[in-house]
């Protein structure tokens, strides 16, 4: 067998390197693809943006059509003021409950049918600012203390889960309960509920 010529070898070497380079360069670059926010992308089976959106959509529809709102408006001729209390995460996952709460808040405020007052944490900051105004702001722009609007209802809730697992298969059941409680007499005027059920099957093999 005749040994390949030097030139042929070099050509083979160069082409091999080119293949390597192209493989590596595609492998290394970060690829970003923008997705529509309402597209469903389930990766791990854990709570994700889609679940959060489904919950807020359902709750918003429900809370605005429930009779408590018309009853309040009939009696007071003004939209009720709401405050967001604690939404407890009693599930088996670390879930950020802020996303659907702020989603709900946005739609509810923009509907003009209800008002929201700042939550406890936000109030502290605003009071600090008002105190500062008292010292430093011009008389005619200064906001007095003790003029805050009190809330009529508090929105509270919890996320619960039940997980049933066998081997690599899991059924995850999420239940989100929200309730609206009257600040004046502790009456619960509305209860919203959203249930989500998922079947998660993990791969048995990987590379």
């Amino acid at each position: 067998m005749r040994a390949p010529s030097f030139g042929a070898r070099r050509a083979a070497c160069v082409s091999l390197m080119a293949v390597f380079l192209s493989v590596f360069s595609t492998g290394c670059a970060t690829r970003v693809e923008r997705l529509p926010v309402d597209e469903v992308q389930d990766l791990s089976g854990a709570w994700n943006d889609t679940d959060s959106r489904l919950v807020s959509d359902e709750m918003i529809k429900d809370v605005l059509s429930a009779p408590w709102l018309s009853a309040y408006q009939g009696a007071h001729k003004a939209p009720p003021a709401l405050i967001v209390g604690e939404v407890r995460n009693l599930s088996h996952e670390h879930i950020n409950t802020q996303t659907f709460i702020s989603d709900m808040g946005r739609v509810l405020i923009n509907s003009g049918k209800v008002q929201f007052v700042a939550s406890r944490g936000q109030r502290e900051e605003i009071r600090e600012e008002r105190k500062d105004q008292d010292l430093n702001a011009r008389e005619d722009t200064r906001k007095p203390m003790g003029m805050e609007q009190g809330a009529d209802f508090m929105l509270k809730g919890a996320i619960n889960t039940i997980v049933d697992a066998s081997g690599k298969t899991q059924v995850r059941y999420y239940q989100v309960d929200l309730s609206l409680i009257s600040m004046s007499d502790n009456r619960i005027v509305w209860v919203g509920q959203k249930k989500i059920k998922k079947l998660v099957e993990r791969s048995k093999l990987r590379f």
Partner: peptide, 15 residues
């Protein structure tokens, strides 16, 4: 948390 996610991903068998 990262370790836990990797553990879950690695629970599948790699030939």
């Amino acid at each position: 948390e990262l370790a836990q996610q990797r553990m879950e991903a690695l629970s599948a068998l790699s030939l």
